[in-house]
Protein backbone atom coordinates (compact mmCIF):
# COMPACT_ATOMS: atom_id res chain seq x y z
CA UNK A 1 0.00 0.00 0.00
CA UNK A 2 1.11 3.52 -0.67
CA UNK A 3 1.30 5.36 2.66
CA UNK A 4 -1.93 7.35 2.87
CA UNK A 5 -0.22 10.62 3.60
CA UNK A 6 -1.18 13.74 1.72
CA UNK A 7 1.85 15.12 -0.10
CA UNK A 8 0.83 18.73 -0.13
CA UNK A 9 1.21 20.86 2.98
CA UNK A 10 -1.70 19.65 5.05
CA UNK A 11 -2.60 18.96 8.64
CA UNK A 12 -4.37 16.11 10.39
CA UNK A 13 -4.78 15.56 14.11
CA UNK A 14 -1.12 14.91 14.75
CA UNK A 15 0.85 15.27 11.54
CA UNK A 16 1.63 18.39 9.58
CA UNK A 17 3.07 17.70 6.13
CA UNK A 18 5.38 20.38 4.79
CA UNK A 19 5.54 20.54 1.00
CA UNK A 20 8.30 21.75 -1.28
CA UNK A 21 9.10 25.43 -0.68
CA UNK A 22 7.02 25.57 2.46
CA UNK A 23 7.35 25.84 6.24
CA UNK A 24 5.34 25.24 9.41
CA UNK A 25 5.72 26.29 13.03
CA UNK A 26 4.16 24.52 16.00
CA UNK A 27 3.88 24.64 19.76
CA UNK A 28 1.64 21.57 19.96
CA UNK A 29 3.43 18.76 21.84
CA UNK A 30 1.23 16.18 20.09
CA UNK A 31 2.27 17.29 16.64
CA UNK A 32 4.81 15.84 14.23
CA UNK A 33 6.15 17.97 11.41
CA UNK A 34 7.15 15.90 8.40
CA UNK A 35 8.47 16.54 4.92
CA UNK A 36 8.79 13.96 2.15
CA UNK A 37 11.17 13.62 -0.74
CA UNK A 38 14.05 15.89 0.13
CA UNK A 39 16.38 15.57 -2.84
CA UNK A 40 18.65 18.52 -3.55
CA UNK A 41 16.28 20.62 -1.40
CA UNK A 42 17.12 20.97 2.28
CA UNK A 43 14.90 20.43 5.30
CA UNK A 44 15.79 22.52 8.35
CA UNK A 45 14.22 21.84 11.75
CA UNK A 46 14.49 24.07 14.81
CA UNK A 47 13.24 23.27 18.31
CA UNK A 48 13.34 25.02 21.67
CA UNK A 49 12.97 22.28 24.32
CA UNK A 50 12.10 24.72 27.10
CA UNK A 51 8.97 26.16 25.50
CA UNK A 52 8.33 23.24 23.09
CA UNK A 53 8.24 25.55 20.10
CA UNK A 54 9.68 24.38 16.82
CA UNK A 55 9.38 24.48 13.08
CA UNK A 56 10.39 22.95 9.80
CA UNK A 57 11.41 24.54 6.50
CA UNK A 58 11.74 22.74 3.14
CA UNK A 59 13.63 25.12 0.86
CA UNK A 60 14.61 24.46 -2.74
CA UNK A 61 17.29 26.88 -3.81
CA UNK A 62 20.03 28.76 -1.96
CA UNK A 63 19.51 32.38 -2.84
CA UNK A 64 16.56 34.73 -3.36
CA UNK A 65 18.77 36.74 -5.70
CA UNK A 66 17.35 34.50 -8.43
CA UNK A 67 13.95 36.23 -8.16
CA UNK A 68 13.00 38.86 -5.62
CA UNK A 69 9.40 38.55 -6.77
CA UNK A 70 9.26 34.81 -6.09
CA UNK A 71 11.00 35.35 -2.74
CA UNK A 72 8.40 37.93 -1.74
CA UNK A 73 5.55 35.61 -2.77
CA UNK A 74 7.13 32.60 -1.11
CA UNK A 75 10.17 33.18 1.14
CA UNK A 76 10.28 29.43 1.93
CA UNK A 77 11.48 28.75 -1.63
CA UNK A 78 14.99 30.03 -0.83
CA UNK A 79 17.38 29.27 2.01
CA UNK A 80 18.50 32.84 2.58
CA UNK A 81 14.93 34.09 3.04
CA UNK A 82 13.33 30.95 4.51
CA UNK A 83 15.78 30.28 7.34
CA UNK A 84 15.56 33.78 8.92
CA UNK A 85 11.76 33.60 8.66
CA UNK A 86 11.70 30.16 10.32
CA UNK A 87 13.63 31.53 13.31
CA UNK A 88 11.57 34.73 13.46
CA UNK A 89 8.29 32.81 13.58
CA UNK A 90 9.62 30.62 16.40
CA UNK A 91 10.79 33.68 18.35
CA UNK A 92 7.26 35.06 18.08
CA UNK A 93 6.05 31.98 19.98
CA UNK A 94 8.63 32.39 22.72
CA UNK A 95 11.59 30.39 21.42
CA UNK A 96 15.09 31.73 22.06
CA UNK A 97 18.07 31.38 19.75
CA UNK A 98 20.52 30.11 22.37
CA UNK A 99 18.20 27.18 23.24
CA UNK A 100 17.37 26.17 19.67
CA UNK A 101 18.32 22.72 18.43
CA UNK A 102 18.94 22.91 14.69
CA UNK A 103 19.01 19.91 12.33
CA UNK A 104 19.29 19.67 8.54
CA UNK A 105 18.77 16.99 5.89
CA UNK A 106 18.81 16.73 2.10
CA UNK A 107 21.16 18.55 -0.25
CA UNK A 108 21.64 15.53 -2.54
CA UNK A 109 22.92 15.79 -6.13
CA UNK A 110 21.86 14.28 -9.43
CA UNK A 111 24.46 12.03 -11.06
CA UNK A 112 27.12 13.35 -13.43
CA UNK A 113 26.78 16.93 -12.22
CA UNK A 114 30.31 18.00 -13.03
CA UNK A 115 30.07 21.30 -11.24
CA UNK A 116 27.61 22.90 -13.64
CA UNK A 117 24.71 23.04 -11.22
CA UNK A 118 25.61 21.65 -7.78
CA UNK A 119 22.26 22.69 -6.37
CA UNK A 120 22.46 20.28 -3.43
CA UNK A 121 25.97 21.27 -2.40
CA UNK A 122 25.26 24.98 -2.79
CA UNK A 123 22.22 24.52 -0.54
CA UNK A 124 24.50 22.79 1.99
CA UNK A 125 27.05 25.61 1.80
CA UNK A 126 24.32 28.19 2.26
CA UNK A 127 23.05 26.73 5.53
CA UNK A 128 26.55 26.45 6.95
CA UNK A 129 27.29 30.04 6.02
CA UNK A 130 24.05 31.39 7.52
CA UNK A 131 24.42 29.45 10.76
CA UNK A 132 28.11 30.32 11.10
CA UNK A 133 27.40 34.03 10.61
CA UNK A 134 24.70 33.88 13.28
CA UNK A 135 26.66 31.80 15.82
CA UNK A 136 24.31 28.86 15.54
CA UNK A 137 25.57 25.30 15.70
CA UNK A 138 23.93 22.56 13.65
CA UNK A 139 23.18 19.83 16.19
CA UNK A 140 22.82 17.07 13.61
CA UNK A 141 22.63 16.70 9.86
CA UNK A 142 22.23 14.07 7.19
CA UNK A 143 23.07 15.54 3.81
CA UNK A 144 24.58 14.77 0.40
CA UNK A 145 24.65 11.63 -1.82
CA UNK A 146 21.94 11.01 -4.47
CA UNK A 147 19.23 9.74 -2.15
CA UNK A 148 15.76 11.00 -1.28
CA UNK A 149 15.02 11.58 2.40
CA UNK A 150 11.95 11.99 4.57
CA UNK A 151 12.50 14.15 7.65
CA UNK A 152 10.28 14.28 10.74
CA UNK A 153 10.36 16.47 13.87
CA UNK A 154 8.46 15.32 16.95
CA UNK A 155 7.15 18.32 18.85
CA UNK A 156 6.90 16.23 22.03
CA UNK A 157 10.65 16.02 22.56
CA UNK A 158 12.33 17.62 19.53
CA UNK A 159 13.60 14.32 18.18
CA UNK A 160 14.42 14.30 14.49
CA UNK A 161 14.26 11.18 12.33
CA UNK A 162 15.37 10.61 8.77
CA UNK A 163 13.99 7.88 6.55
CA UNK A 164 15.51 6.63 3.32
CA UNK A 165 13.77 3.67 1.69
CA UNK A 166 13.06 1.23 4.52
CA UNK A 167 15.74 2.61 6.83
CA UNK A 168 14.78 5.06 9.54
CA UNK A 169 17.22 6.53 12.02
CA UNK A 170 17.14 9.22 14.66
CA UNK A 171 19.72 11.94 14.09
CA UNK A 172 18.79 13.95 17.20
CA UNK A 173 19.15 13.19 20.05
CA UNK A 174 21.94 10.73 19.31
Amino acid sequence: MVPPSAPISSTDAAKTVIGVADMAISSDPNATLITYALGSCIGVTVYDPQVHVGGMLHFMLPSAKLSQEKAENNPAMFGDTGIPLLFKKCYELGAQKERMIVCAAGGAEVMSDNGQFKIGSRNRTLIRKIFWKNNILISADDTGSTISRTMALSMADGSVTIRNKATERMIWPL
Partner: peptide, 13 residues
Protein backbone atom coordinates in the same frame (compact mmCIF):
# COMPACT_ATOMS: atom_id res chain seq x y z
CA UNK B 1 13.97 15.92 -9.81
CA UNK B 2 15.82 19.06 -8.73
CA UNK B 3 12.55 20.61 -7.59
CA UNK B 4 11.77 17.54 -5.48
CA UNK B 5 8.52 16.90 -7.35
CA UNK B 6 7.72 13.21 -7.25
CA UNK B 7 10.91 11.83 -5.79
CA UNK B 8 10.70 8.19 -4.82
CA UNK B 9 13.21 5.69 -3.51
CA UNK B 10 15.06 6.09 -6.80
CA UNK B 11 16.14 9.48 -5.49
CA UNK B 12 18.31 11.61 -7.78
CA UNK B 13 20.06 8.65 -9.38
Amino acid sequence: LWAGLGLGHDGLQ
